[in-house]
Each structure stands twice: as structure tokens, then as C-alpha cells.
């Protein structure tokens, strides 16, 4: 008969093994390939000579570092915009929607269930020279020529990704606001605080962890984005992720691509550690 303690290896063992094999080992492989001399599409059978030449090359290429900076800045911008836009929505759902909050939240989340690629394509249709916005503007007689600059630019990437993330961004903020004890607000009111003072001094501080969680939950997938930039970014809207992909496909140089991926991984983990110092993300889990 299997005792309680005896069950543990069967519970913890398989997941630990699976995650080690398919999550830890692959990440270690990036490190291994990035520290390997040579270039091109080098298989495991080739020579394994340790070298930091690929890191030297990445750090010696201002264009790569600038693009990394630009990608981080773009992701920060997108995460900030998504958070700011989602905040009033979460506020409305928590404090104003009353019994309909669940329905309204569901309405908000439905677009998030629509395929990501489809939503990006929708924006392509909206922004294109023959697209919705242009033909609408022309139909209303506001412009006579199509505005060419809407699509294939960094702003197009930002607009599209903010759109993609806003519904999701409302969730952690909403969760944090749900936990605000209404008596705090009533106490503030009793002490003479006006609506704005209550908002700034009670609601905002108490919902801040949720807002920060939102920020990072948007930032992390966005900083490594490459699909949306490839579809709507044109030649100057691309991000660091596109170059990583480039070194694995179009320009096949796996060790160099690995070094670039490693740099992104370390940077992201650092930012998350910083985030965890600021806010305890576990308190705002969904």
C-alpha cells in the first residue's frame, strides 16, 4: 500500500523531470551554443571550442545594442499605454459596473480570445493604403489621397500591440481593485477626503501592485516580439527579436543568434527581479 509520503516521488518526479529536460536543458543549450566558436548553422556534432567572440560581436555592434534599447523602450511604451488605458476600465468594472461587472469583464475579454494573428491582420486591414481607416477618411471626404504612413512603421507596431494587450491588461488591475477594502474608502470619506483625494491616496496606492503586474505581463512578451513587427513594422519598425529570428532563418548563424537570445534572456530576468523587489506579484495572481 502506497503511503502518503511514498506518493510524493510520483507527484513531483515526472513534472520535475519533464521541466528539466524540456525547459532547463534548452536554456542551457542557448548558453552553450552562444559560447561556441564558429558560425553558420553548426550542429551538435561540430567542434565545441569555447569562445566569447559572439558576445564581443554583439556588444561591438552599436546597431544591435541600439535596437535592443529601442525594443526595450518600445515595450515599455506599449506596456505603459496598455496599463494606463486598462486602469480606468478596471476602475469602472470594480466600482461602477455593480452586478453587471462579470458580464462587462467577459465582454472585454472576448477580443483577447480572438486569434492574436487575426487581430494583427485586422490592424493591417485597418491601416493599409486600401484599408478601413483610409477608405473611411476618403469616404467622409476628409482626405483625397490615402495616407501612406499608417502601415509599416513603429507607430503601427505600437498601436497594434497596445490593441492586442489592453483587454488582458485590465485583469490584474481588476483583481487588485477587487481586494481593496471598501471601508478604507469610507473611512477616508468620513475623515473629509474628497473624491479625488480618496482616489489618489487610497485607490491608487492599493491598486498599484496590480498595475505593476499588468505592466510586466505586457512588457515581457512584448520585448521579445517579432511577429507583429514583421507584419506591420516595415523596414524601421522591427525589433531585437526579428534579428534573433534572422540569425536562425534568413541569415543562419546560430551561435551569434544564441548570444543575442542569451542577452535578451538575462536582461528580461534582471528586469523581473527588479520588479519583484518593487511588488510582490503573488499578491495579484489571477
Amino acid at each position: 500500500m502506497l503511503g502518503r509520503r511514498g506518493t510524493l516521488p510520483f507527484l513531483a518526479g515526472p513534472p520535475a523531470l519533464w521541466l528539466a529536460l524540456f525547459f532547463v536543458v534548452p536554456l542551457l543549450l542557448i548558453a552553450a551554443f552562444s559560447l561556441r566558436a564558429g558560425s553558420g548553422a553548426v550542429g551538435p556534432a561540430g567542434a565545441w571550442v569555447p569562445s566569447i567572440e559572439h558576445y564581443q560581436q554583439v556588444f561591438g555592434t552599436p546597431a544591435f545594442l541600439r535596437l535592443l534599447g529601442l525594443s526595450v523602450a518600445t515595450a515599455v511604451g506599449i506596456a505603459t499605454l496598455a496599463t494606463l488605458l486598462a486602469y480606468p476600465v478596471a476602475y469602472y468594472l470594480t466600482f461602477r459596473a455593480g452586478t453587471r461587472a462579470t458580464l462587462y469583464l467577459t465582454l472585454l475579454l472576448i477580443p483577447f480570445a480572438v486569434s492574436y494573428l487575426l487581430r494583427v491582420m485586422a490592424w493591417k486591414l485597418m491601416l493599409g493604403p486600401d484599408g478601413g481607416i483610409n477608405s473611411l477618411l476618403q469616404g467622409l471626404g476628409l482626405t483625397s489621397e490615402p495616407l501612406g504612413l499608417l502601415l509599416y512603421s513603429r507607430p503601427a507596431v505600437i498601436v497594434t500591440l497596445v490593441y492586442v494587450w489592453v483587454p488582458f491588461a485590465a485583469l490584474p488591475i481588476y483583481a487588485a481593485m477587487q481586494r481593496i477594502d471598501r471601508s478604507h474608502l469610507e473611512a477616508a470619506a468620513d475623515l473629509g477626503a474628497g473624491p479625488w483625494a480618496r482616489f489618489w491616496r487610497v485607490t491608487v496606492p492599493l491598486s498599484l501592485p496590480g498595475a505593476l503586474a499588468t505592466f510586466f505581463m505586457v512588457f515581457i512578451p512584448t520585448v521579445g516580439e517579432y511577429v507583429t513587427p514583421a507584419l506591420v513594422g516595415g523596414t524601421d519598425g522591427i525589433m531585437y527579436g526579428n534579428i534573433i529570428l534572422g540569425f536562425f532563418t534568413r541569415s543562419a548563424n546560430w551561435p551569434l543568434g544564441s548570444a543575442m537570445a542569451m542577452i535578451m534572456l538575462v536582461l528580461t530576468l534582471l528586469l523581473v527581479v527588479v520588479a519583484l523587489r518593487i511588488v510582490d506579484l503573488r499578491r495579484v495572481s489571477l
Binding site: S39, G40, R66, I238, G246
Partner: peptide, 17 residues
């Protein structure tokens, strides 16, 4: 191979610029 590596890396730098 040397040319291939140099030329493809050059192009990725152009992309990143």
C-alpha cells in the same frame, strides 16, 4: 563560408540599424 557569414551578418546589422 567566410563570405557567407560576413555578408549575412552585414545584412542583419543593416536591418537592426
Amino acid at each position: 563560408e567566410e563570405q557567407r557569414t560576413a555578408w549575412t551578418a552585414m545584412w542583419e546589422r543593416v536591418q537592426a540599424e
